[in-house]
């Protein structure tokens, strides 16, 4: 709804900026001539790289162990199956991160002495989970908790591993939200309070909608790195893409399955990254027009 409104904003034709392209401004800066130059210099660069690498003495050996097409094809079904695990892990993870981080950021943004315990809790949480490497958390929770064999508690490494990733990412993402909250002028909070809204309602209805819009680009970037970081669960033996590639690679004494996994990750993360850049550029263009 707000998007529609912004689209109908009259803009004088001379002020209209070039609409952002999904490729960023790789080609759009200097018109057709620039595009040609860019094309040939890119082509030249890659040809040169291929020639240099191809002439290396060890290239045939490297080619056999990394770029064995048959092995890539053979291992692909298993790696693909693992990758589907990656996809649901990062989708569920992202939703959980956005929700948990928002709660933490709100706790941290409440003002007044009454909310001190909540603020303190949020700060301790953020400091703790930003302070430990994810991989360490994975070892501690992913091996430690299932080993306790507690009744009524999930025993799967995937569950605890994903939880660690979510907790860690939420600490960072909470800070992202908070920067967005801080960027909303205090007068908005005051204005909401003057209508008789509670502090929580003021956050919820007046501040957060504006804050979240401020940080969507940063959230998108976080999503792109989450896509790759769920692969860390391989250390717990979770059968995701990297782990499957590892298994296939061990069987054939060949690294080519890793190439299969690499291609799958790129197939998701490159479009996501392009989308994040495109969205950011579009958002910036709109803001510089003074629209909202």
């Amino acid at each position: 709804m707000t998007a529609d409104r912004r689209d109908t904003q009259p803009v004088s034709s001379d002020a209209r900026p070039v609409p952002p392209s999904i490729l960023g401004n790789y080609f759009s800066q200097e018109g057709a001539k620039g595009a040609l130059v860019a094309f040939f210099s890119t082509l030249g660069f890659f040809l040169l790289a291929i020639v240099i690498i191809g002439r290396s003495e060890n290239w045939p050996a490297v080619q056999r162990s990394f770029f064995n097409w048959d092995i890539i094809v053979d291992s692909f079904p298993k790696v693909w199956e693992g990758f589907r695990t990656n996809v649901w892990m990062f989708l569920i993870g992202q939703v959980a991160i956005m929700a948990l981080a928002l709660v933490i950021a709100m706790m941290r943004s409440l003002k007044g002495p009454a909310f001190f315990p909540l603020r303190l809790l949020a700060i301790v949480y953020i400091d703790f989970f930003r302070g430990i490497p994810i991989i360490l958390g994975l070892y501690l929770f992913g091996f430690g908790v299932p080993a306790l064999r507690l009744t009524g508690v999930p025993g799967s490494a995937a569950f605890w591993g994903l939880l660690v990733v979510v907790l860690s990412y939420s600490a960072y993402t909470a800070e992202v939200y908070r920067s967005g909250i801080d960027a909303v002028p205090d007068s908005q909070r005051l204005s909401a309070a003057s209508l008789g809204l509670t502090q929580f309602q003021a956050l919820r209805y007046a501040v957060l909608p504006q804050a979240i819009r401020n940080v969507i680009p940063a959230l998108l970037n976080g999503f792109v790195s989450l896509q790759k970081d769920v692969a860390l669960l391989a250390v717990l033996g979770v059968r995701e893409a990297v782990r499957e590639a590892q298994i296939a690679s061990g069987r054939d004494f060949n690294y080519s399955p890793y190439i299969a996994a690499t291609l799958l990750f790129l197939a998701i993360s490159v479009p996501s990254a392009r989308f994040a850049d495109w969205y950011t550029a579009r958002d910036r263009a709109r803001r510089s027009q003074g629209v909202g």
């Binding site: 007068s187 005051l190 204005s191 309070a193 003057s194 209508l195 007046a206």
Partner: peptide, 19 residues
């Protein structure tokens, strides 16, 4: 909050919610 419901204020810079 209940006091503020009985007192209206118009700010120097309006402070309408832009969204």
């Amino acid at each position: 909050n209940s006091v503020r419901q009985r007192i209206g204020i118009v700010f120097q810079s309006y402070n309408l919610f832009p969204h």
